[in-house]
Amino acid sequence: MANFALLLLAAMAATAISTTSGAYTGCATPRKITIQNLSGRDLHLTEQPLANSPSLFPAAGLVLRHGTHAEFPTCIWTGRVAAPEAGAALVEFHVAPDGGAWYQVDNKQYGAAVRVTVTPHGRPLQGHCPAAGCRDHGQCFADRVPGGNCHAVDELKIIYYSA
């Protein structure tokens, strides 16, 4: 029985080695999600991680004070971020370990007291990477990245503005 256990352990170790040799080993370049608050009020932010993404902030949410920002280093993240008490549009996005990004936010935010944009940053960005959502003074952009054709993203920046 002891020989069987040793043989089983050796087989498991060999499988683990062969599996990890071609497996994903982490980010060569860490990515960052930055959330900035220029809304004129403190914002209570909530998140909904998807696809086994870890939480960015505590389960109770994050209170982001006016005039501040928070940075979240990540390798890969998929989910939604919201400021429900402020009535701001829901932001949904994905940041991939290779720098690919997909994001969307409603660009019909005319009645909202707090508006939100999503903007990718990279050196240089590749593909089609427009700003999405609406800024202050009614300036609005695209509502999503068509086909997910945005690459070389180092940072995805979410900014909340006053209307």
Rank of each mutant, 00 (worst) to 15 (best):
A83V: 06
F57P: 03
E71T: 12
Y103A: 07
F57D: 04
C129R: 01
A10C: 12
R144A: 14
P124W: 06
K157E: 10
R31P: 07
H94M: 14
V116W: 05
S18L: 00
P54I: 04
A2F: 04
Q139V: 15
V63G: 08
H128V: 13
R123F: 12
M1W: 07
A96E: 11
S18W: 00
E71M: 08
P97Q: 13
A16C: 07
A88N: 02
V114Y: 04
D154F: 05
A10L: 13
G26T: 02
N107C: 02
C129N: 05
V105Q: 02
I35A: 04
D106K: 13
L56D: 09
G100N: 15
G61K: 06
K108M: 08
Y103M: 00
R144L: 12
I159H: 12
A11C: 04
H137S: 13
P58W: 03
E71Y: 04
H128R: 13
N149D: 14
V105A: 08
L45R: 06
T34K: 12
E71V: 11
V118F: 04
L90W: 07
F72W: 05
L8I: 00
G133S: 01
C129Q: 02
A163N: 13
F93I: 01
P73G: 10
E85D: 11
Q109I: 05
G87R: 06
F93M: 12
N37P: 05
A5R: 00
V114D: 01
S162D: 13
G67C: 02
Q139D: 15
T34D: 09
V114W: 04
I158F: 03
R80L: 14
L7N: 14
G148D: 07
I159E: 11
G99M: 00
C27M: 05
P130H: 01
N149A: 12
W77V: 03
R115H: 15
T20S: 15
Y161R: 06
R65L: 09
R135I: 09
R115G: 05
Y110P: 03
P130G: 05
P58H: 08
A82H: 04
I76M: 14
L6N: 08
F141P: 07
P49E: 06
H69R: 15
Q36A: 15
G138R: 14
H94L: 14
F57K: 00
L6K: 10
S18A: 06
P120C: 05
Q139E: 15
E155L: 11
N149S: 13
D154K: 11
A101R: 01
S21T: 12
H128I: 14
M12H: 03
A23I: 01
T15M: 01
V145E: 06
L62I: 09
G40R: 07
A142G: 08
N3M: 09
A60R: 10
G40Q: 01
Y110Q: 11
A163W: 07
V145M: 06
L38K: 11
R41A: 11
Y161K: 05
L125P: 08
Q126K: 13
L62V: 05
N3H: 15
I35E: 06
A11Y: 00
D42L: 09
T34E: 11
T19N: 07
S39C: 03
P97A: 12
H128S: 13
G87W: 01
V91C: 11
V105H: 03
Y160C: 04
G87T: 00
S18K: 00
E92Y: 13
L64F: 01
D106M: 11
A113G: 13
R80T: 15
